[in-house]
Design a protein around this nucleic acid. Structure first.
Lengths: 115, 115
DNA sequence: ATCATGCTTAGCCATACGGCTTAGTAACAC
DNA sequence: GTGTTACTAAGCCGTATGGCTAAGCATGAT
């Protein structure tokens, strides 16, 4: 498998799981502790911690431990690279449409009466 | 594992692989055949076809066979759900900031002696 | 000191993923 | 027809993923 773009791969992979997306959505509304995050999932703590590890490795959340309680928080800018990449694809596509249009215009100018 | 959001899961999963992202990027610039797509990857055809299957299942590309040649094309709107989801998280985050700000304003108006 | 809480570590298990090979099948070229 | 080209189908292999249990380890409460 290719080795470049570890960031985007980790980002998209982290987002590809519904459990992780749900956690991220809850964190976007405000910080939560690990147990609070686990509560609505029906999953065991170790499983939840693995998900949090994936999210944190992708840079989507940050966490800090105060006493025995770990609090997790959404990292606001983290989704930007993913958004940028998708935007780049859209741009590519539109550039192609523009070239097509330019080509058609050219044809029309050159051969006004032919089809 | 949770069962909702199969679309987003498939979408993000499809995007989580660098090979697939590279293929999608090339397709965003214009349609290509399977062999053309495979060429720069260094991967075998069956492997490439699996990747194409993932991309197509996610709705990111469409393909059609003409004679013995299958041509693949970028599907422009397909990234929108992913972008929308990410935008929703950003909104959540900003709503939270707004509430925080409103709260602070309230504290300041009251003179800050109690809650 | 003892116990409860909250997280952590280690490891098991089944399935999915990303790569491969080998062997087809369907169209075009001669 | 024979062969070549372009894709497809089937299945193997090693690793990663997503879930679990069981046990450990701090910290806070009694």
């Amino acid at each position: 498998m290719a080795k470049h773009d570890p960031d985007l791969s980790a980002l998209f992979h982290a987002l590809s799981d519904p459990t992780r997306r749900a956690m991220l959505a809850r964190l976007a509304a405000g910080p939560l502790t690990v147990t609070e995050l686990a509560a609505p999932t029906g999953l065991r703590l170790p499983t939840v911690l693995k998900h949090l590890g994936v999210l944190e490795a992708a840079g989507l959340i940050a966490s800090a431990k105060d006493g025995r309680i770990r609090t997790c928080a959404f990292v606001p800018g983290a989704l930007a690279p993913a958004r940028d990449w998708m935007e780049a694809q859209r741009s590519l596509w539109e550039a192609r449409l523009d070239r097509l249009e330019a080509y058609v215009m050219q044809l029309m100018k050159e051969g006004g009466h032919d089809q």
